[in-house]
Amino acid sequence: MTTASSPVGRRERNKQEKLDRIMDAARELFAQHGVDEVTTQQIAEKADIGAGTLFLYAKTKGELLLLVQNDAYAKALDQGREDAALEAGAVEAVLAITSPIVACNRAQIDNGRTYLREMLFGDPTEPARREALEIVARTEEAVATTLQRTAGLEDVRAATTARIISAAMYVSMASSLNVEAGVDQIIDEIAQQIRVLLAPATDGGAF
C-alpha cells in the first residue's frame, strides 16, 4: 500500500513546489514592477518553469495576482482578528480588523486596485476568485462577531452592519479619488464611516 501511494505523494509535492515557486516569483515581480508591467513569461522564467506549465496553474496575470494577494489578505485578516480581540470599544475593534487589510491593499496601490477589480469582475468559475470572495465573507463574519461582542448587536443587525462596513472599506480602497491616498488616509476615511454607522448603537439610540 505504501509503495502504491508514493508516486501520488511525489506528484502532489512536485505540484505544490511548482506552485510555491510561481507564487514567489509573481509576488516578487508584482511588488517590484506592478502587475501591469510584468509578463507571464517573466514569471515563468523566474520560477524556472515553462510558460505552458505556468498556464496549468493560472491562465492570466489576474489569476496569478489573486493567488498571491489572497494569501496576503488571509494573513492580514488573521492579524486583524488577533488585534481586535484586544480591543474593548466597537470602533477600535472593527478598525483593528480592517487596518491590516487596508495596509495589505496599499502595499502596492496599482496591484491592490487590480486585485479588487479581479475579485469583483473576474471569471466567476476561477477558484482563486472564489477564494477572494470567501476572504471577504470571513472578514464580514469577523466584523459581525466583533460587533456582537463590543456593541451588543444582535445577529442580524451585526451581520448587516458588518456587510455595510465591508462595502465601505472596499469602496474606499478602490475609489479613484483615493489613488494617491496612503494607508492612514484610507483608515481615517473608514473610521469616520464606522463611527457614523455605529453612533446610534453605541450612544444607545435607535439604529
Rank of each mutant, 00 (worst) to 15 (best):
residue 1 M to Y: 07
residue 1 M to F: 11
residue 2 T to W: 03
residue 2 T to P: 02
residue 4 A to V: 09
residue 4 A to H: 12
residue 4 A to L: 12
residue 6 S to C: 01
residue 6 S to H: 01
residue 9 G to Q: 07
residue 9 G to K: 07
residue 11 R to E: 05
residue 15 K to H: 12
residue 17 E to I: 10
residue 21 R to C: 13
residue 23 M to S: 12
residue 25 A to C: 15
residue 26 A to N: 11
residue 28 E to D: 09
residue 30 F to V: 01
residue 31 A to I: 04
residue 38 V to F: 10
residue 39 T to V: 02
residue 43 I to V: 13
residue 45 E to R: 14
residue 46 K to T: 12
residue 47 A to I: 12
residue 48 D to S: 15
residue 48 D to A: 15
residue 49 I to V: 15
residue 52 G to K: 15
residue 55 F to G: 12
residue 55 F to N: 10
residue 56 L to Q: 14
residue 56 L to W: 10
residue 59 K to Q: 09
residue 59 K to N: 13
residue 60 T to R: 14
residue 63 E to W: 06
residue 64 L to Y: 01
residue 66 L to K: 02
residue 69 Q to N: 10
residue 70 N to F: 00
residue 70 N to I: 05
residue 72 A to M: 03
residue 73 Y to W: 04
residue 74 A to P: 00
residue 75 K to L: 07
residue 79 Q to V: 07
residue 80 G to A: 04
residue 81 R to E: 13
residue 82 E to Q: 10
residue 83 D to W: 03
residue 85 A to P: 03
residue 85 A to N: 12
residue 91 V to I: 06
residue 94 V to C: 01
residue 94 V to A: 09
residue 94 V to F: 05
residue 94 V to R: 06
residue 96 A to M: 08
residue 97 I to Q: 00
residue 98 T to H: 00
residue 98 T to D: 00
residue 99 S to Q: 04
residue 101 I to P: 03
residue 101 I to N: 00
residue 103 A to Q: 06
residue 107 A to K: 02
residue 109 I to S: 01
residue 113 R to T: 02
residue 113 R to P: 03
residue 114 T to S: 03
residue 114 T to N: 05
residue 115 Y to K: 00
residue 117 R to H: 06
residue 117 R to P: 02
residue 117 R to N: 01
residue 119 M to N: 05
residue 120 L to N: 10
residue 122 G to L: 03
residue 122 G to T: 00
residue 123 D to P: 02
residue 126 E to F: 01
residue 127 P to C: 08
residue 129 R to G: 02
residue 130 R to G: 05
residue 134 E to N: 04
residue 135 I to L: 02
residue 136 V to K: 01
residue 139 T to M: 03
residue 141 E to S: 06
residue 142 A to H: 01
residue 143 V to L: 00
residue 144 A to G: 06
residue 144 A to F: 05
residue 144 A to D: 04
residue 145 T to C: 08
residue 149 R to P: 07
residue 152 G to K: 14
residue 153 L to E: 11
residue 156 V to S: 15
residue 157 R to S: 09
residue 159 A to T: 13
residue 159 A to G: 08
residue 159 A to H: 13
residue 160 T to R: 10
residue 163 R to Y: 11
residue 163 R to E: 08
residue 164 I to L: 13
residue 164 I to E: 07
residue 167 A to V: 11
residue 168 A to F: 13
residue 170 Y to W: 10
residue 170 Y to P: 00
residue 170 Y to V: 02
residue 171 V to K: 07
residue 171 V to I: 12
residue 172 S to H: 05
residue 172 S to E: 08
residue 174 A to S: 14
residue 176 S to M: 10
residue 178 N to T: 11
residue 181 A to G: 08
residue 182 G to K: 07
residue 182 G to M: 07
residue 184 D to F: 07
residue 185 Q to Y: 04
residue 188 D to H: 04
residue 188 D to N: 10
residue 188 D to T: 07
residue 189 E to S: 06
residue 190 I to R: 00
residue 190 I to E: 05
residue 190 I to L: 13
residue 190 I to T: 07
residue 191 A to G: 13
residue 192 Q to K: 09
residue 194 I to G: 09
residue 195 R to I: 07
residue 197 L to W: 13
residue 198 L to H: 12
residue 200 P to K: 15
residue 201 A to T: 15
residue 202 T to G: 12
residue 204 G to E: 14
residue 205 G to I: 12
residue 206 A to M: 13
residue 206 A to N: 07
